[in-house]
Design a protein around this nucleic acid. Structure first.
Lengths: 110, 110
DNA sequence: TTTTAATACATAAGATTCAGATGTATTTGA
DNA sequence: TCAAATACATCTGAATCTTATGTATTAAAA
């Protein structure tokens, strides 16, 4: 687990990337996928995730569909057309940022 | 310039790295150095920098000395013993975080 | 020569964003 | 059967940053 401040500012990018890879996902699924892929190093809390999903939806970046799994409601999120380009844009920006930071912090390639 | 949220959480790491490289620096100097090294891509605002410097000082990570340049006061910041290890620690943590993100976002090496 | 830009410190108000706590309800597995 | 996992979500508060503002000195340009 990283110190909490590090994750800041990357949540939106992570969520958009996950949805770009998986067509549609529900909230809990996103938290688990990220946890799995990062070997528990990044754990998205629900208190952070849901407000983010809702704000992305409000901005037209995400689309939702509700389904019933038995009696339980499940809310799927997927990228809108706009969301697809937004996702690429965000990932590219982060890649650029990493290069800048790598240089600034003189980090040698792993 | 990156979207503001990206920088979040990295300010402390950047400041500590700058001081590890330069022995002692004053606030304004740090903002300019980072601006120069990143080709204006990262611009630390003073409203963000000074609270950070003060809190690092309060935590015993930084030491200050005040000097007069003409009539103007200049406040130099440098790493304490504890600050030196903290600096390495922070940079290493960020390097690790970048690797995790690179994998998660499937970013190919530049 | 005057006045603008740059240097250099700093604070304060507000926004954003995240963590942690809490809440509800269902379903699976021990 | 009862605990743990699944799945949604909200709310309070803490942390951190942005924008704006303020003071004062010094260098450079008009």
């Amino acid at each position: 687990m990283y110190s909490s401040e590090l994750i800041k500012g990357t949540l939106k990018t992570i969520v958009l990337k996950m949805l770009a890879e998986n067509k549609r996902m529900y909230g809990y699924e996103i938290t688990q996928k990220v946890k799995d892929l990062t070997g528990n190093k990044i754990q998205i809390t629900e208190g952070a995730l849901y407000p983010t999903l809702h704000s992305l939806e409000a901005d037209g970046i995400l689309i939702t569909e509700t389904e019933y799994i038995g009696k339980r409601v499940r809310k799927y999120y997927s990228l809108s057309k706009e969301g697809q380009s937004k996702s690429k844009e965000k990932v590219n920006e982060f890649a650029d940022f990493m290069n800048t930071m790598k240089f600034l912090l003189e980090i040698k390639p792993a």
